[in-house]
Design a protein around this nucleic acid. Structure first.
Lengths: 190, 190
DNA sequence: TCCGTACAATTTGGAGCCGAACGACATCTG
DNA sequence: CAGATGTCGTTCGGCTCCAAATTGTACGGA
């Protein structure tokens, strides 16, 4: 089992590298495996069901959110899909061009844009989602239902921890220092 | 707790949408939460320790792999870091320009390139990794050590399942059909 | 020695993605 | 009711990422 062994070995090597400074092994293993699992799952789903429907992971997630929640404002969709507003603008326009998504202005608030599925989009989701869910079951096949529940619950606690305390934690770490702006991002007008 | 509720609710809505077609709830929840957790963790780490060191997640992972494993061939580093060889070429050159990474030809096989950390790179990792690990502990703070172990173990089983059976599964799904090329990426020559 | 095949990293092109700046609109306030 | 303030979605710069095409190197046979 390469995953198991290589991570354990990496941890030991890391400890050696740090020369006695304590490493939080279990927490490190959780983070490493969260990321590995996310990549593996995404790759598998993109290369199986999504590729066939000509959808990227992000595009599928956006369609899924709108499908489940019904007509929604873009900021909620971005939030729920876990992408930035800027990304959603591009993705939703691509999906609109393909006739899967509708973009409509809000009747009373001119700032808002509402997203909803077209009939074609609904059809697509009715067809693709069962296959998607089947592959979700495939990737989780080594876990029984109780294990699924407990892993999902543990991950939820991680998400909540970051959502609820992440901001304050980051501020505490910076300790008043400038937030060090990201390298990318739009430049100010001259 | 928005995470818990919205996912559960989404599942119920999905079931309704499918009109009786059974949904594998637990497996769906696992996949959804793996992805949510991965995004949350990555975002938190990028915006706390990595931003300060002017590193992206990918750049950090590459440095970490080379740091832990010592001088390595690029294909192994790409594999271990979970990125494509093409991506690694760009990332490693950026890190080389910053003086953190060394790229050297293999002494006997001219096709290979070996990566290793410069002294400056070693110093950076000795400084950044403890802070990184601290934040790993922060995001996992709602889990005790045993829970960390069991979540990590469950995730490892997901990774293994995909690594060991993913390829055959994808082939079975396609059932001999053409693998449907990706939309992005370089176009075939006419 | 000169191919042909195999396998390495790199180049290239298209899409994705984030987050700061921006402009349009809404709403509060004096 | 005009200006300040706030809140949207959009724009845009800089990366990231993948995978096909390409380039370069190795090596086993003719």
């Amino acid at each position: 089992m390469p995953g198991q062994r290589s991570i354990t070995q990496a941890e030991k090597l890391a400890e050696a590298k740090l020369g006695g400074i304590p490493v939080r092994h279990e927490q490190m293993a959780v983070v490493a495996n969260i990321y590995r699992a996310a990549s593996a799952v995404r790759q598998h789903l993109e290369n199986s069901v999504l590729r066939g429907a000509d959808l990227t992971w992000t595009a599928f997630v956006v369609l899924w959110v709108v499908w489940i929640w019904g007509e929604s404002e873009t900021r909620h969709v971005a939030e729920e899909a876990g992408i930035s507003k800027g990304t959603l603008t591009g993705v939703s326009r691509t999906l609109e061009k393909r006739g899967l998504l509708r973009r409509a202005g809000h009747p009373t608030d001119g700032r808002l844009v509402l997203l909803s599925l077209t009939e074609e989009g609904e059809e697509l989701m009715r067809r693709v989602f069962p296959a998607f869910n089947e592959e979700e079951a495939f990737v989780a096949a080594q876990l029984d239902v109780d294990e699924c529940r407990s892993v999902a619950d543990g991950l939820r606690r991680v998400v909540l921890q970051v959502e609820e305390h992440g901001e304050e934690r980051r501020l505490a770490l910076l300790d008043g220092a400038a937030p060090a702006p990201r390298r990318s991002g739009r430049r100010p007008q001259p």
